[in-house]
């Protein structure tokens, strides 16, 4: 429901105050309670579900397929796709979600993680369904993808089909995998997936996990890509149709710092969830 003029001005004044005052009394860096679970789907290599307090929910399943490549290319084959219920396919929002995560994962995942032999590679498909969303679904989708990737396991080659030496691996034809699910490697053994965080900017303040109403009065949104303990990407996004998208340099600098510390906390929280 659109906000009335009075409501809008009340919200924007209370959010741009210093210190700010959010309608639900939260801190700038405070998330609403959420409910997360990993390893929920038996037909996937890794899966996760996160549900927010406002009813927003996302399920992500990660599947790996074996593909052939010509020569020794170093491409990372990852495809991110998501279905947002209630929004037609190929909408700008869906494209933003998929392309942001796909670029972030492709640029941070080392290609040798998906290497089987010199001819065969794993291709990772990350599919999400956003069952419902009230606030912007980007952070929700990114967190669920992060958790699903933490849960992802890739099968190892069957021991009897591989020779003694590492080089013999390239000689075998079609790869044969071990049929034991315990005999698998975690995709995130020595890699941690990127985490995208969206903050909204109101005046000089930045807020994480904004509700729909807060986004309605924002000047714009800033998304940061967090990987390996630092921010590696930055982008300004529209959070409402009539947003100005004009920020001062100092507010962006401040926002990046705030979002970085939010990402650090979220990453710590997600890593604590038991995966299968």
């Amino acid at each position: 429901m659109p906000l009335s003029l009075t409501e809008e001005s009340y919200l924007s004044v209370s959010l741009s105050q210093r210190p700010p005052c959010r309608p639900d009394g939260r801190d700038q860096l405070q998330f609403r309670p959420m409910d997360a679970a990993a390893g929920i789907l038996p037909t996937t290599n890794g899966s996760a579900r996160i549900r927010l307090d406002d009813g927003g929910e996302c399920i992500v399943g990660v599947k790996a397929e074996v593909i052939t490549v010509s020569g020794s290319s170093n491409d990372v084959h990852v495809e991110v796709d998501c279905d947002i219920i209630g929004i037609p396919p190929n909408s700008p929002l869906q494209n933003l979600l998929c392309s942001t995560l796909e670029t972030a994962i492709k640029s941070s995942l080392p290609s040798h993680f998906l290497r089987i032999t010199n001819k065969y590679r794993f291709k990772i498909f990350i599919d999400g369904i956003i069952l419902d969303h009230v606030s912007h679904p980007l952070t929700l989708f990114s967190m669920t993808t992060y958790l699903a990737l933490l849960d992802t396991r890739l099968p190892r080659l069957a021991p009897d089909s591989v020779g003694e030496h590492e080089n013999d691996k390239d000689e075998i034809g079609i790869p044969q995998f071990s049929s034991d699910w315990a005999d698998t490697d975690r995709l995130c053994k020595s890699w941690s997936p990127p985490l995208v965080q969206l903050g909204i900017i109101v005046g000089k303040n930045v807020f994480v996990d904004a509700t729909g109403e807060e986004a309605e009065v924002s000047d714009g949104g800033l998304l940061t890509i967090w990987h390996d303990g630092r921010i590696v990407g930055l982008r300004v996004v529209k959070t409402r149709d009539s947003s100005k998208q004009v920020f001062s340099i100092s507010s962006i600098g401040n926002a990046v710092e705030v979002l970085a510390s939010a990402s650090r906390e979220i990453e710590k929280g997600l890593k604590g969830i038991r995966t299968s």
């Binding site: 789907l41 037909t43 899966s47 399920i59 399943g61 279905d83 219920i85 498909f125 369904i129």
Partner: peptide
């Protein structure tokens, strides 16, 4: 009815 692409053994995306 929404069928998730990851619901089957082989990943397959179906149009609505």
């Amino acid at each position: 009815v929404i069928v998730a692409p990851f619901s089957t053994i082989e990943r397959r995306k179906r149009p609505q």
